[in-house]
Each structure stands twice: as structure tokens, then as C-alpha cells.
Amino acid sequence: MDVSARLRQGNLLPLVGIGVVSGLFAAMFGIGGGIVIVPLLMLVAKMPPRMAAATSLATLILTSLIGVVRYAGTDHVDWLGAALIGIPAVVGVLIGIRIQRRLPADWLVLGFGMFVIAIGLRLVIWG
């Protein structure tokens, strides 16, 4: 049975829970989008790594939009700055997805594990 079929059968609460946790961490540490969502989707919802990463990106559409709306009307968002880094990042994401498509799942998890450890070290050392 594929993952979305299993999720359709109920168990919606864990997904909302994953969202709540990622939002909590985002508000508390400024870190908490994909780095919280992807491992939890793999561990709790048993999603395959690639689908977890892709679904995490889809979640971030919502969370980043909500976040920006919250700041809209203040002068905290520098739109030129966002474009200068965000547009090249779109090129990066398309390349990243091409690489991901060719990468066996175990290598993907290995790479993500190293990335998570790097962020964990940063937090442990600098708080």
C-alpha cells in the first residue's frame, strides 16, 4: 500500500502534529521548516525519503506565505534582498531535484543525516 493511501485511511492527526512541532521550533529558534518536517515524515508517517523532501517543500509554500503575511506592512521584508538570493535559489532547487532524482534513497538519507548533524553541532556549540 502506498503512503498516500495509508494516510487517506485516517491518521491525519500525526501530520497536524508534525506541523505544530515545526512551527513551534521555527518560532523558537528560527530553524524548523524542513529540518523538522523531513525526519518526522520519514519516522512518523513512514514516507520514503524523496517524497518526504518533496512534501516538505510543498508545506513550506504555506508556512513561508503565512510568515510573510505576518510581516507585511512592517518594513522588515527587503524585497530586493529576497529576489537577489531567492531567484538564484530557484535555479539551485531545480538542479537539486535533478540530482535527487538520480540518487539512491540511502545516499539521500546519508547526506541529509550529515546535514542534520552539522546543524545540530551549530546549535549545541553556539546555542
Binding site: 501530520l15 513551534l24 508545506t59 508556512t63
Partner: peptide, 18 residues
């Protein structure tokens, strides 16, 4: 690769979590 329903549920949860 995208489970849109899962994404919508998590996005709603994240709004509460924030």
C-alpha cells in the same frame, strides 16, 4: 512525489505552532 493533503495538514499545524 508531493502528498498535497499531508502538506496542507502540516501547514495548518505549523500556523498553530508558530
Amino acid at each position: 512525489q508531493v502528498d498535497w493533503r499531508a502538506a496542507a495538514l502540516m501547514g495548518g499545524g505549523a500556523a498553530i505552532g508558530v
